[in-house]
Amino acid sequence: MSATPGPDPRRARVRRVAGVALVAVLVGLGIAVFATAVTPRGTSSVVAPGGRETEAPVPATAAIYVHILGEVTRPGLYELRDGDRAVDAVAAAGGFTEAADAGGLNLARFVSDGEQIIVPAVGETSAASPGVASDGRVNLNTADAAALDTLPGVGPATAAKILAWRERNGRFESVEDLLDVGGIGEAKLEALRDLVTV
């Protein structure tokens, strides 16, 4: 009677090692695929003197300065980016105080360079209408319909056209852009030139 040979321990060990190696390769491939999927594409590089490759600088958005006062935690002058809104100015100043009338400010409106924002306390009226600078000029980029309506020769219909132009085209780059608004010609532009700003 002959004995049945048992499993070869060397073969079992080789199979285990091969299995572990296969799992390690699959995990490595999975990590490589994941890393490729989340890596940003399209980054440009420049070759510096000496043959070193460096990342190209990303063009910076133009800086603007806004003076925010009133019921904010840290009133003062803040550097923001062109295209920021009033909410960004409030955030830069540390947010509203407990006494602030948050509804007294249109947080969604764009801010412009050199603008002063006054956040009123509850029960207090703001010193200036939205979009009206401290010198009384109306800012074409931030004024609401009521502020535009205060301009001579600009009634509700023309104010609505100015707001519609701003909605379609973005910011006014110069006062002369008013000529692109229906109903405003050279004569009306000259009457408004010293009363408005951008």
Rank of each mutant, 00 (worst) to 15 (best):
A3F: 11
A3M: 14
R10N: 12
V17L: 01
G19E: 03
A21L: 06
L22Y: 01
G30S: 05
G30N: 00
A32L: 12
V33E: 03
A35M: 07
T36H: 06
T36I: 14
V38E: 01
T39W: 09
P40L: 07
R41D: 08
S45T: 15
V46Q: 01
V46S: 02
P49K: 08
G51H: 13
T54H: 07
A56K: 07
A60P: 11
A62I: 13
I64T: 13
L69I: 15
L77D: 12
R81H: 15
D84F: 05
A86C: 13
D88F: 09
A91R: 14
A93E: 05
A93M: 02
G94W: 05
T97G: 01
A99V: 10
A100K: 05
D101T: 02
R109N: 11
R109I: 03
V111P: 04
I118R: 10
I118E: 04
A121H: 01
T125R: 06
S126K: 08
A127W: 08
A128C: 07
S129T: 07
G131P: 03
G136A: 01
L140H: 01
T142F: 04
D149R: 10
L151E: 07
G153E: 01
V154H: 03
G155Y: 11
A157K: 14
A157G: 05
A159S: 12
A160L: 14
I162V: 04
L163E: 03
E167T: 07
R168Y: 06
R171V: 15
S174E: 08
V175K: 10
L178A: 11
G183L: 03
I184V: 01
K188C: 02
V198H: 04
V198G: 00
